[in-house]
């Protein structure tokens, strides 16, 4: 029997550190997408809260309790990270655990790095802690979250991990280079 060795999405690509910004891979134990069918939103949200302790989040928001997070990921869809909700009557539920590469970027200039890659308003009072956005990371679709003042979470399709690390490294190098000039 072959012994298979698990490879993480960003293995050999992260961590990266330039200037005051560091990017590290984040491993979620489980990622599950939950999409309530039309008219079932309230029922599914209650069932989800009963199953894993977090309800279905409002658009553009993250709800966290202990190690479980529910991230809004689009119209009528959220991702549950860190706990398997199991089957939820009235919703389409799919396992996404191996489909995404997740990383966290942290540091004083983390926002300046993201501003080179993400076309949304990242000002601290507009994209606040606990907010989530579906947007672009370079040319890739991503799930962006603000986890703390200078800390952001980024999820991209796992197949795009190499491109994401490449784009991120370029932006981090340029921001660090400007910082050195000051």
């Amino acid at each position: 029997m072959a012994e298979l060795i698990a490879r993480s999405a960003f293995q050999g690509l992260l961590p990266l550190r330039f200037g005051n910004v560091e990017a590290v891979e984040v491993m979620a134990a489980t990622i599950t997408s939950v999409s309530p069918f039309r008219g079932q939103e309230t029922k599914v949200s209650k069932a989800l809260e009963k199953a894993v302790g977090v309800p279905f989040p409002d658009a553009g928001r993250v709800i966290a309790r202990d190690d479980v997070r529910a991230i809004w990921t689009g119209m009528g869809q959220c991702f549950v990270l860190g706990a398997d909700p199991g089957p939820l009557p009235g919703a389409a539920v799919t396992d996404q655990t191996d489909a995404w590469g997740a990383l966290a970027i942290e540091g004083t200039d983390a926002r300046a790095v993201l501003a080179r890659l993400v076309p949304i308003d990242l000002r601290p009072d507009v994209f606040a802690v606990g907010h989530a956005a579906r947007t672009l990371f370079g040319h890739m679709a991503c799930v962006l979250t603000r986890e703390a003042g200078d800390r952001y979470g980024i999820m991209v399709f796992r197949s795009m991990a190499g491109s994401a690390a490449h784009e991120l490294e370029g932006a981090m190098r340029k921001v660090a280079a400007r910082e050195r000039l000051q």
Binding site: A59, G74, M75, P119, I120, D121, R134, T135, L136
Partner: peptide, 11 residues
């Protein structure tokens, strides 16, 4: 209506 004002490149 969900995301707020977004750049044209997302559409």
């Amino acid at each position: 209506p969900f995301c707020g004002a977004r750049d044209i490149r997302e559409f």
